[in-house]
Design a binder for these strands. Structure first.
Length: 587
RNA sequence: GCGCUCUUAGCUCAGCUGGAUAGAGCGUUGGCCUCCGGAGCCAAAGGUCAGAGGUUCGAAUCCUCUAGGGCGCGCCA
């Protein structure tokens, strides 16, 4: 509908250009048409006359007048008006909006989809939490956002791949393996003081217990050997990080490569399985689970660094290998290979992104926690250095959800074991409420997550308001059957002109906006637009419901109204599905 | 200290890439079921868009400065 108006305007402008009123060089793509914000301003408004007034050397209102005079006639425009400083307001005909009802009913689940993505390959990488513990509510926001972004892009015609990057190769994993083994030592009667920097969560005991049942005392070593000559922990006035590093190498020495690897892998696999399960319960799916080790244990890492080296932006200093990212506006240069010969996290992450590009994605979307924002410039710098367009990479920084319980801020830490898991959240407030709540806020906004509120007053969650509208419409159709009434869709479509109430027109307008909202949310990577739209649509329906009866005696009016609410039900269902929320027929 | 980011109603947040009189929910106050589900509807009160300059026909939106919050600033991941 918007596009049709654009065409009308473009023709009027072209006409003006031919008559020398306008310079020929105006940018046709710059024609802006927007939904009018106020009812008195019609349905759509354009500000072209304001933006082009300077170049036409005319006052905006005069230019607007000239444009309006040259607008081709159209059967879906009732009236055009010049208002304010020079806005052109379009008042659309009833027919223009009525058409949306048969459109929705015809398209069904597909209503709102489009092909603006033209089948281009996009990858969305999200969650990617270190497999060192179960997902907690902090990860939930990234999961809900990433899933919604991916679904939105798919809805507008991109070929989307959803990926989870598993950091299975770093020091964090060694800390995990060592933590598990030390708990195992406790169970087998060789306890040593648990390090301050170890993972303290209860789930570590669970994994250690399973390990003990499988292996008995095979992995047991004497406690005195474990702690012999270790540096002091922080509780003893020492350094926590030095202590845990020493424990890691002690575990590797005492267990040997093979047994240490067994503990390590068992921890990884167990936790990864629980993460997959939690995500599944949360309605989030990943197509590919990509392991960091597949980069670090292949030539990919070397190749990636070679590509950087070949670009001439790499140098040696202090026995380490550096990337001169300051050549591309980064704050400081970054180390690729440490002086101990090990690669940095940045190096493997870069190699991973090279791998992604090699898989033919024209666009990469990473969803990161806001604490990683410093990594964006260096990754883009690396893209630039090797001749890749940094604009191919979109990083969505998701701010942390700050948790409150009893009015007090909750600290979340996987290490200390103090966190609320995503699993618990789903159990307490349900997947639908959690998904809706997470996606409702735009991602760069800090978010307060009050657990007490989410748990105790679940009815206040706007998700129920939207779902209720859906269930209510279903209920109307159940009532219709009980009353032995019928619904003829074709007859309804033939009598849409009977929908003359202002509530009906408002609902028609809201329905016609849906494809625009989906497109806008997808291109801006802003899924929060969907819940906000759905709230408004549900409100339109509830208002209508209270003001008018649908199951009236007149079959023509009844069919038309039932078509309208059936279309509303369809759009609510489509919108909820995009953000991973179910559309119940009863509540 | 430096960098990024945020600040909109009592609270939690929208505000459609610069548009017209800044909008919702919760909370508060007052109304609405003999009727398709009251998890609903209607109405009222509530604002110096953190503050100050600037850019222009026009600013919550863009620029600068100031104040306050968050996050980064390691040869950790």
């Amino acid at each position: 509908m918007k596009q049709r108006l654009c065409k009308l305007l473009a023709r009027a402008l072209a006409d003006l250009a031919n008559h020398d009123t306008l310079p020929v060089g105006y940018d046709a793509a710059a024609i802006h048409i927007e939904r009018a914000r106020r009812k008195g301003h019609g349905d759509f408004a354009s500000n072209v006359a304001l933006t082009l007034a300077d170049r036409a050397s005319l006052p905006p209102r005069e230019l607007a007048q000239a444009i309006v005079e040259r607008l081709p006639a159209s059967d879906f425009v009732d009236q055009v008006e010049i208002a304010g400083p020079g806005f052109i307001n379009f008042f659309l005909s009833r027919a223009a909006f009525e058409a949306v009802v048969p459109d929705v009913l015809e398209a069904g689940d597909a209503f709102g989809r489009s092909d603006i993505g033209a089948g281009k390959k996009v990858q969305v990488e999200f969650v990617s939490a270190n497999p060192t513990g179960p997902l907690h509510v902090g990860h939930g926001r990234g999961a809900a956002y990433g899933a919604a972004v991916a679904d939105l892009l798919q809805a507008v015609g991109f070929e989307v791949q959803r990926e989870y990057y598993v950091n299975d190769a770093g020091r964090q994993m060694d800390i995990l393996a060592t933590s598990i083994w030390l708990r195992y030592q406790e169970l087998s009667g060789e306890a040593v003081p648990f390090p301050a920097s170890g993972y303290r969560g209860d789930y570590i005991y669970d994994i250690a217990g399973q390990l003990y049942r499988q292996h008995g005392k095979r992995l047991q070593r004497s406690a005195s050997e474990v702690v012999r000559d270790l540096p002091l922990d922080i509780s003893e006035g020492g350094d926590a990080e030095a202590r845990i590093d020493a424990l890691i190498s002690r575990a590797k020495t005492l267990l040997g490569e093979s047994q240490y690897r067994q503990v390590h892998n068992y921890g990884l696999e167990t936790i990864l399985a629980s993460i997959r399960q939690d995500l599944e319960q949360f309605g989030v799916h990943h197509d590919v689970w990509f392991f960091e080790r597949s980069v670090t244990q292949s030539s990919a890492m070397k190749d990636a660094i070679e590509r950087l080296r070949a670009s001439g932006h790499v140098y040696n200093k202090d026995a380490a290998l550096w990337f001169r990212s300051t050549d591309y506006q980064d704050e400081k240069d970054r180390v690729l290979i440490k002086n101990d010969g090990q690669h940095t996290y940045f190096a493997s992450d870069f190699a991973y992104h090279i791998n992604k590009l090699g898989r033919g994605f024209g666009r990469l979307i990473d969803i990161w926690g806001a604490d990683h924002h410093g990594h964006v410039p260096r990754m883009k710098a690396a893209f630039s250095a090797i001749g890749e367009d940094p604009a191919k990479l979109d990083v969505l920084l998701v701010q942390f959800a700050v948790l409150y319980r009893g009015g007090k801020k909750l600290q979340m830490s996987t290490r200390s074991g103090e966190f609320v898991t995503l699993h618990e959240l789903c159990k307490e407030i349900g997947k639908d409420a959690a998904r809706f709540f997470y996606v409702m806020r735009k991602c760069e906004q800090h978010m307060d997550f009050d657990l007490d509120l989410a748990k105790s007053q679940t009815a206040d969650n706007p998700v129920y308001y939207v779902q209720y509208a859906h269930a209510r419409i279903c209920s109307v159709f159940r009532q219709m059957q009980e009353k032995k009434l019928t619904h003829n869709r074709d007859n309804g479509n033939a009598h849409l002109d009977l929908l003359t109430e202002s509530h009906e027109r408002d609902l028609l307008v809201a329905l016609s906006r849906y494809p625009e909202v989906v497109e806008s949310a997808a291109t801006a990577l802003e899924p929060h637009q969907i819940p906000h739209y759905l709230r408004g649509l549900a409100n339109g329906f509830h208002t209508y419901y209270n003001a008018h009866t649908f199951l009236v005696d007149s079959a023509d009016l009844r069919d038309a109204r039932l078509n309208l609410i059936a279309a509303t039900r369809q759009v609510i269902s489509n919108g909820l599905k995009l953000i991973g929320v179910s559309a119940p027929e009863k509540m």
